[in-house]
Design a protein around this nucleic acid. Structure first.
Length: 283
DNA sequence: GCCCAGGAGTGTG
DNA sequence: CACACTCATGGG
């Protein structure tokens, strides 16, 4: 099955290639491919037209892709609002097609627990290992992200051999602490309550809670602060301080779309780092 | 070998 | 509140 949808503005390379999500790969033919739910999806782009291929053939593919790429976000409006800040305006200008993605809540939580203090190539590899061992086969060589139930049944001794380091026991314990419908209950909460709940999970601190709030639960006001954002805020806004003081600065300055602001800052900071660029241009 | 990574947890002043 | 230290490991 293949068909086209229209999403604008959109740049798949920017959106899928640099650290929001870890399972998309750029194929030699220029298509981005990876698992979404229990289907293997290929996405190509010409202008604002996105070509979609899916196997096995599912009925809700268009919905899956539109949700993942947050097709209903008024990105132009968000950029216009953020661009009232001249510093941000300059940062946005080369990133018009960068969109926040919407990741499955469970996949996002585990992914960003694994992402703590690791670089993107390694994170990608860890998630690949987890899916290969515990996910279900979609097509040859591609497995779905493992379910909560399946991961809960994985003994720690086994997870400890996956190359996750100290993260193994975090995800092992997080699985056991959460019951099956906990995350759907989380979805009903305010952002503040959601953060507090997430932070009670092992391996989830301020930064992971904000990443999961933003990319997993779709809270566009979340503003995750990692080392890159910390540098960007220092360099561009001369701000330094605790996580919460920086977060409050961002909330006040960028308001309900702080998450998009964060992504523009993140990308700019990475692009200007020596050799530090994104997946689609690394090999 | 060295440095760093989309940090968190715990303890101390 | 602020630091300081440890955690386990691989990619560049």
């Amino acid at each position: 099955m293949r068909f086209d949808i229209n999403i604008s503005p959109l740049d798949l390379d920017l959106t899928l290639g640099c650290g929001q999500t870890f399972r998309w790969r750029k194929a030699p033919d220029g298509f981005w491919e990876g698992p979404l739910g229990n289907q293997f999806i290929r996405l190509g782009q010409k202008g604002s037209i996105v070509h979609i291929e899916a196997s096995p053939e599912g009925r809700e593919v268009e919905g899956l892709v539109r949700t993942h790429l947050r097709a209903d976000d008024d990105v132009r409006g968000i950029q216009k609002a953020l661009a009232e800040d001249p510093v941000m305006a300059a940062g946005i200008s080369e990133l018009k097609g960068l969109r926040i993605v919407k990741i499955d809540e469970w996949e996002c939580l585990i992914s960003f627990i694994l992402a703590t203090y690791a670089n993107i190539p390694r994170i990608t590899k860890m998630i690949e290992t987890l899916s290969t061992r515990y996910g279900e086969r979609i097509i040859a060589g591609v497995n779905s992200f493992p379910s909560q139930d399946r991961l809960r049944r994985a003994p720690l001794s086994e997870l400890a051999k996956c190359g996750f380091g100290y993260r193994a026991k975090f995800i092992h314990e997080a699985c056991k602490v959460l019951d099956d419908d906990a995350l759907s209950e989380f979805q009903k909460m305010s952002y503040e309550d959601l953060r507090d709940e997430l932070k009670q999970l092992p391996g989830v601190g301020d930064k992971v809670a904000d990443c999961v709030s933003l990319f997993g639960f779709g809270r566009l006001d979340a503003f995750p602060i990692d080392v890159w954002i910390e540098r960007a805020l220092g360099r561009l806004y001369h701000r330094k301080g605790s996580y919460n003081s920086l977060r409050e600065f961002a909330q006040e300055r960028f308001g309900p779309y702080a998450g998009y602001a964060q992504e523009y800052l993140y990308y700019n900071e990475r692009l200007r780092a020596p050799g530090g660029t994104c997946m689609f241009s690394e090999k």
